[in-house]
């Protein structure tokens, strides 16, 4: 596997605050990395440093083997970038804008026309081809942004919140598009929508307060907690608090935490830090105590739980 993006020890301070603190990241061909984090965690800043737009205080970034600061032209030639909010020249028709970007990227004549035609079809812009960008809907504008990033068929694609503000259908389309182009490229997608990561990304990198706090496949992230030391219980009772009090002595000294309340039922998490407990034993004990327990099982966290867990630990 070829590594197409290689960032090492990126650091950036704005005044007194450290926006990005020692972030390293490498992405191979064929990988789609979901870049996750709460707002203000440093996602955009990191991406701007990898694209060569923002100079890091320290650290390096390489695209396709070229350092973005020492050899910017070669590095940027291999890069397609959709900045946050998909900026574009509003007064220009879609065709003119894409043709401008293509020419700036060195495409000419037949080659340019081929790429334009392919973009029109692949990103489905034919309908709005000669309309000014400022007259387009959000979904179309975002697609124009993707098209300008793809026009020169780059090896590396960096997309800053490509689905932000789109409706569910448009989001679905955008994800399909990303999946389609993924096999031959390295793609970094920032988002705060977790289902997006599960559906399109082969790897999730979670960043919080400027630091990488997790870097694994979405499945591993979720699975990393599936070790039998955490058991979940669902109870359904209007007197939740008193039921919880009654459960406490029966579960063998577990740490007890309310995870979620939904439709009158409560999801409890029991953490056994040292010795795993047997799910069945607990089930039997609770049943015989005649408590309104609906379900006892191994705790399988959703990505959302992991996200909350790793990003709040730091604060």
């Amino acid at each position: 596997m070829t590594t197409l993006v290689e960032a090492r020890g990126l650091k950036k301070r704005f005044g007194d605050t450290t926006a990005v603190d020692d972030v390293s990241l490498s992405v191979s061909r064929g990988e789609v990395v979901g870049f996750l984090g709460p707002n203000g965690a440093g996602k955009s800043t990191t991406m701007k440093m990898i694209t060569g737009f923002l100079e890091p205080d320290s650290g390096t970034a390489q695209i396709g083997g070229h350092d973005v600061w020492r050899d910017p032209a070669a590095a940027k030639a291999k890069l397609g970038y959709l900045p946050e909010g998909a900026p574009a020249y509003g007064e220009m028709p879609v065709a003119d804008f894409l043709s401008f970007v293509g020419k700036m990227r060195g495409l000419r004549k037949a080659q340019l026309n081929n790429r334009l035609a392919e973009m029109a079809e692949r990103v489905r812009l034919t309908e709005v081809w000669s309309r000014p960008i400022e007259a387009l809907s959000k979904g179309y504008r975002r697609r124009v942004g993707i098209a300008q990033a793809l026009i020169h068929d780059p090896d590396v694609l960096i997309l800053d919140e490509p689905t932000d503000g789109l409706d569910p259908n448009q989001k679905h389309e955008m994800r399909n598009l990303i999946r389609e182009i993924a096999p031959n490229k390295s793609i970094i997608v920032s988002t705060h929508i977790l289902e997006e990561v599960e559906s399109v990304c082969s790897r999730a990198v979670i960043i919080a307060s400027g630091k990488v706090v997790a870097d694994a496949t979405p499945r591993d992230l979720v699975g990393s907690k599936d070790d039998g030391r955490a058991i979940q219980i669902r109870i359904s009772s209007p007197e939740e608090a008193s039921v919880i009090e009654k459960i406490k002595p029966l579960v063998g000294g577990a740490e007890l935490e309310v995870m979620e309340r939904m439709n009158g039922s409560t999801r409890l998490l029991l953490r056994y830090n040292d010795k795993p407990e047997d799910t069945h034993a607990i089930k039997t004990r609770l049943k015989s105590a005649d408590l309104p327990v609906e379900e006892v099982g191994i705790y399988r966290p959703r990505l959302e739980d992991v996200f909350r867990d790793v990003t709040t630990r730091i604060h």
Binding site: G52, F53, A73, K76, Y81, P87, A88, G90, V101
Partner: peptide, 14 residues
């Protein structure tokens, strides 16, 4: 203002 400077400055030109 519009952020297009990010596009310009990430193009492979001086």
């Amino acid at each position: 203002r519009s952020g297009t400077i990010e596009l310009l400055m990430t193009m492979p030109v001086a």
